[in-house]
Amino acid sequence: MSLLAVENLEVRFDTADGEVCAVNDVSFSVEPGETLGIVGESGSGKSQVFFAVMGLLAANGRARGKVRFRDTDLLGMPVSQLNTIRGAHLSMIFQDPMTSLNPYLRVSKQMTEVLVQHQHKSEQDARRIAIELLERVQIPEAARRFDQYPHEFSGGMRQRVMIAMALLCQPDLLIADEPTTALDVTVQAQILDLLAQLRDTLNTAIILISHDFGVVAGLCERVAVMYAGRIVETAPVREIFYRPQHPYTRGLLQSLPRLDADDHQELPTIPGQPPNLQSLGEGCAFSERCPLVQPHCLTDRPLLRQIAEDHSKACHRDLAA
C-alpha cells in the first residue's frame, strides 16, 4: 500500500478578486522509502499541494479530493486528530528555517517539547534523543550548542536543526519544501548529502519540492512536473531528464544554462509568462507558450495520460523521443 496517496486534489482560495484555483485535479502517490521530486515554477501550486496535505492552508483556502496517509484520510480530519499524525508520522521542512523556529525559545526547548508531548518521554530522555539527532545531522559540538537560540546558528545550521526537528519522532514521510533555496551552493551540497544519507539509513520517504532541476536530479527517484496548478508530466527521474515528453518539461530543461556546457550560444527559451491562475481558459494552460500548439489545445484541456510504463503526461501532442 502507498504511504501517501493523493487523489484529485483541488485547492481553491477566496481572494478579493474572486476565486483562484491554485491546485487542480492532482493525483500521485509515494511508496515507503521512495523519494519523489515535485518541480515547478512559482505559482505552479507545488507548495499548496503539501500545505493541503499537512492541513496548513491559509484561512481563505479550501481543499477537496482525497489525501490518504496509509489508510486514514487526512482531508477533513479534525485538527486534534491531525496533530497526532503530523509531526509524528509526517513532517515538513520549509525554505526559510527561521519561520518555523521560534526565535525566543532555545533549540533544546523546542526540540524536547515535541518528544515530551508526543511520545511522553522524560525530559532527560528527550534531551538525549535530541542531541543524538543533532549529531546525526552533523551539527558540530551538538551538546554544547543544544541550549543556544536559533539566531546563534548560521543558515545552514538552522536548516539542519529543522531537519533534526522534523526527524524527532522518526516520521515515515518527510516533505521538504525548497529546503536549500535560501542556502549557498556549498551548504546546499551538505544538506542534500544529509537528506540522501537519512533516506538510506532511516528509510524515510522524502518528497522534495523544488524549482531547481539539478537538486531533483541528484536526489529523487521519481519526478512530477507541475504547471499552473496541474501535474503535466510524471516519470522516473532518468525518463524526465533524458526523454522528457511534455513540451514544458522539455523547454525548461533546454533553457537551463549548463555548468558543463562550453558553448555560449543563445539559450533556447520558453516565450511568455506563466499564466494568471484567475484567467485560465478552457484549453491547455501551457498552450499560449507552447511551440507545438494546435487549435484544439486552446479549447480542449489535455488530461494526464499514460504514454509508457510509469510515464504520464498531460499533452495532446506526441513528441518524437
Binding site: 551552493v185 556549498t186 546546499q188 551540497a189 542534500l192 531547481d212 532541476f213 539539478g214 537538486v215 536530479a217 541528484g218 527521474v237 532518468r238 531528464f241 533524458y242 530543461l253 537551463l256 549548463r258 555548468l259 558543463d260
Partner: peptide
C-alpha cells in the same frame, strides 16, 4: 569545491 557543489540537471552525471 564550488564547481563540484553545483547540482547538474542530469541524474547520471549528478
Amino acid at each position: 569545491a564550488l564547481i563540484s557543489a553545483v547540482p547538474l540537471p542530469d541524474p547520471d552525471q549528478e
